[in-house]
Design a protein around this nucleic acid. Structure first.
Lengths: 248, 248
DNA sequence: TAGCAAAATGTCATTATGACACTTAGTAAA
DNA sequence: TTTACTAAGTGTCATAATGACATTTTGCTA
């Protein structure tokens, strides 16, 4: 964002980002850890987010948050939903935290949640000012968060799951070159169940949305896997007719 | 909404509703017609909407708009997306209109769009104060609207199309008792293409989400059609496993 | 009672799915 | 150099789903 201007915060609207990553084992999410107070009541995680500026769109605000935190641009980032409960900021520990951070901590804020998919392989979660407080947590290990962020996370997780059934967005969580086993594992993790290896490979290959490269894993103590890459063109062709179970 | 209290408008956030209906022929949407000014530049349609109150959620605001306009409650109503372009209210004709309606017509407003599905059969589009300005328009006949409402309509239409492939939400557009031909026509209209009648019926019946009633059309000058009703229970069972083309 | 209009129905060839176990290729250790 | 280890990679078959296609049925009307 251009820094020559003074941006005014819009006090009533924020964005929050659910940033998903996949380490070939688990689905993870980027969280910010609040510092504990004496009572320990504040030792909880929140999603990265910010109030929006009056001269930026929601998409721009979400991109800005994402970039400030990870340095990444042009990655998969999609609006999830607006959250507007009247009591979303009103838990005592949350209010205490807000008092430290915001000019008008009591003001009602509606947030628009986004979810992002990043390739966290070889990714350094360091970034800017936040550095120490930012970390990747397995989604399944999280069972509560600050504000209504747990609700947002669950919704985003569910959305990722549904969307993956319809569009091959999972590729955004992998490096450009990946093995079919990695893709297979990714689908299993997000679907939350085992998928037959042969049937999975058959389907992916038949759909022609992956293509085999002349390159193999090296240094692995077993038969090396071939690398594949995603074929955007074939995906788009496919997306026109649409793949879905009703068939129309 | 409880009327004993004074509600304060939240100046920066509105909801807009895309209310879909189906007359067994075409997909229609409820629009509000602005009165023309002398120049005729304002003779355009807008979606029903309103600024939200500070003590209501977005869902509540959308339900309120819907009820004020149609008298209907407890119908299918789902959040679509937030829209936040910086120039969404800044076309000259739109500004002129806003000046007549709002205390702070220049203020930036972000809107959260909803879409609703109603059974418009035997529906009287009269309602409250708006009465004369409200009408059902075929979606396909609309090619421009006030503000960013055409963009919102298109997005809602697209969402309806995608969602129908995954969940049988089309039933919300039909009366409780309907014929398979009506359902067939609905799917054709929303899918925007012909669907084989026999295959369509086979699929619907096999899925067991419709059940045949002992009742037939009367007074039609041809073989009368059986009425069916939607089976929510079977749908929910089905929804757990999920119907989708990837199969996981 | 003949004619009309839309509803209702069945088959078949092709393709997709789901279930299932062994062989292969490279590394590492003996 | 041989052996053991590990994950990659591959094929078949029975069952289910799809897509393409034409005739008969039912009730009303003239």
């Amino acid at each position: 964002m251009d820094n020559n201007y003074q941006h005014n915060l819009n006090k009533g609207i924020s964005v929050d980002c659910v940033i998903f990553g996949f380490d070939f084992e688990k689905l993870k999410v980027l969280v910010i850890q609040r510092e504990s107070n004496e009572a320990g009541t504040m030792a909880r995680f929140s999603l990265p987010g910010d109030l929006i500026f009056d001269d930026e769109t929601l998409d721009q605000a979400a991109s800005r948050v994402l970039k400030e935190l990870t340095g990444l641009e042009n990655i998969f980032l999609e609006q999830l939903q607006a959250f507007s409960s009247l009591n979303r900021l009103s838990k005592p520990a949350d209010k205490e935290w807000l008092r430290q951070m915001r000019e008008q901590p009591e003001e009602r804020v509606i947030t628009v949640a986004y979810y992002a998919l990043v390739n966290l392989n070889g990714f350094n979660p360091m970034a800017a000012n936040f550095a120490k407080a930012v970390s990747w947590k397995p989604v399944d290990d999280i069972n509560s968060m600050a504000f209504d962020h747990f609700e947002i996370l669950q919704k985003a997780h569910q959305q990722l799951h549904s969307k993956l059934k319809i569009q091959p967005i999972g590729f955004n969580l992998l490096p450009e070159k990946f093995t079919l086993s990695q893709l297979h594992k990714l689908y299993e993790v997000i679907a939350g169940k085992e998928l037959d290896k042969r049937n999975f490979r058959r389907k992916m290959i038949k759909l022609e949305i992956v293509e085999k490269l002349n390159e193999k894993q090296k240094g692995v103590p077993h038969k090396p896997s071939s690398f594949y890459q995603f074929n955007l063109e074939n995906y788009q062709k496919l997306a026109e007719t649409g793949f879905d179970n009703f068939g129309f």
